[in-house]
Design a protein around this nucleic acid. Structure first.
Length: 409
RNA sequence: CUGGGUGUAGCACAGUUGGUAGCGCGCGACGUUUGGGACGUCGAGGUCGCAGGUUCAAGUCCUGUCACCCAGACCA
């Protein structure tokens, strides 16, 4: 993409209402635009990052045999009434609205009810199971206090996967597969070494659940971890009973803050029972479907990564999710000609700064935007038939032959 | 929701004892510049969050309201 062809613009100063690092830098670099507290627009670069994160998740889930759908955000109260989750006294984060023809609608804060309700149409036999269905979708939660940039929004993008089984053993089997897939996903996203599976309470779902916690100073959760971090616990289950289960003692644990990027539950019959999701088994008996659900906060992950790797110059994206691989700058007449040529060989990978600006400003923006490799072609480097490459992460620079750049990179 | 704070140009800010709004960045034109956020000249851009009130006169004083930020509580 050419910078002269996009409407985005970088800012020297962050808006005063963006105090969190992720919100301030993503705004300054032109990745996001704020609508309201906790409600953001994703601009071209930000959307690319989101799509790259989705692609990684999609690849790993599809490899498990999961099917992708996209469900409505507007919700019919009926299935929610069946599980007792429509009442505002029970779920106080609903955005509800009246319909002009009468009655009410809600904006989905999650999707267990509609998913189960929908699949009643399609699941009737043991032959239809197991089944794994997921989507990427905006969730709406009327948080009392949205904060920390895109880390805690009222509208946010989440991947939610639901699994359906004929037995608890099969649910356990698939749950373990998702755990492994999540490990691969976070590794590919570049936060594998600071994201841990943590024990957490099951909330209203079940006794226990697992959370994926990325250690981060601005994280909202408090977690406890042991020496080799093989055991991580959310504060809410950091008690003697749970520690006894794990054969551990409090003295060996340390405290830190973390951001919850994923949460997985074994729901069993929690929703299939009240909503009547049943199947017929081999002996023609009606049975209730076992369920699991597996969330992953896509927009929150983007914020966590922005926050985690940022330095005093700006964002630093891992290669796997960066919006572009190269930030291209041509200096001087010949350098600009060569840059144009390079750009045309790989427009999809290059963010070409073809603005009529001085080099210093372009370098500053390259760093602010966090593009992994900056390619500079100038009359100076061309004197040796070379281009200069600078890695954002380390600041290291090296030269490559122009011919090599055009072909290999 | 409780406590504290902030709303003035796209962004960041100033605005005195009330007298009809200004600086920097950004933006447009021209010229000089061109490897680390250049410089000069000219220029465009504002119902001072919103609604009432006091006053001859309100960005400024009073009342109400909305939004946003921070801390806490909350977070299926």
């Amino acid at each position: 993409m050419r910078l002269t062809k996009t409407f985005i613009k970088t800012l020297r100063d962050a808006p005063k209402d963006e105090t969190a690092t992720n919100g301030a830098l993503l705004t300054r670099a032109g990745y996001i635009h704020k609508e309201l507290a906790g409600v953001y627009d994703y601009l071209p670069l930000g959307l690319k990052v989101i799509e790259n994160i989705k692609s990684i998740i999609r690849e790993e889930l599809n490899a498990l045999g999961c099917e992708e759908v996209s469900m409505a955000a507007l919700q019919n109260p009926e299935p929610w009434e069946a599980t007792g989750r429509w009442l505002s006294e029970k779920i106080d984060i609903w955005f509800k609205t009246e319909v002009s023809s009468g009655g009410e609608l809600g904006l989905a804060p999650t999707h267990e009810e509609p998913m189960v309700n929908m699949l009643k149409t399609y699941i009737s036999s043991y032959k239809d199971l197991p089944l794994y269905v997921y989507q990427f979708q905006n969730k709406f939660r009327n948080e009392l206090r949205a904060k920390s940039g895109i880390l805690r929004g009222r509208e946010f993008l989440m991947k939610d996967l639901y699994s359906f089984h004929t037995s608890e053993e099969d649910l356990d089997r698939f749950y373990a597969e998702v755990e492994k897939a999540y490990g691969r996903i976070f590794a590919r996203l570049g936060i594998g070494d600071c994201t841990y599976e943590a024990f957490a309470s099951g909330g209203i779902f079940s006794k226990y659940s697992h959370e994926y916690q990325t250690f981060l100073p601005v994280g909202e959760d408090t977690v406890y971890y042991n020496n080799d971090r093989s055991v991580v616990l959310n504060k809410e289950v950091y008690n003697d009973e749970v520690l006894a289960d794990l054969g551990a003692s409090k003295e060996k644990f340390e405290e830190t803050t973390a951001a919850e990027v994923g949460n997985i539950f074994k729901l069993k019959f929690k929703y299939s029972e009240p909503l009547g999701l049943k199947y017929i088994d081999e002996s023609n008996e009606q049975k209730t479907v076992y369920m699991g659900c597996y969330g992953l906060g896509v927009s929150r992950v983007m914020g966590v990564i922005a926050e985690k790797f940022a330095d005093d110059k700006g964002l630093v994206w891992p290669d796997t999710i960066a919006p572009y691989k190269y930030y291209l700058v041509g200096i001087g007449e010949k350098g600009t000609d060569a840059a144009e040529k390079f750009y045309k060989t790989r427009e999809n990978e290059v963010l070409y700064d073809d603005r009529d600006k001085r080099p210093g400003e372009k370098f500053a923006d390259a760093e602010l935007m966090g593009i992994p490799l900056r390619v500079v072609i100038s009359d100076k480097t061309l004197a040796d038939d070379e281009a200069e490459i600078t890695e954002r992460k380390t600041g290291k620079s090296w030269r490559v032959k122009i011919d090599e750049l055009m072909q290999k990179f």
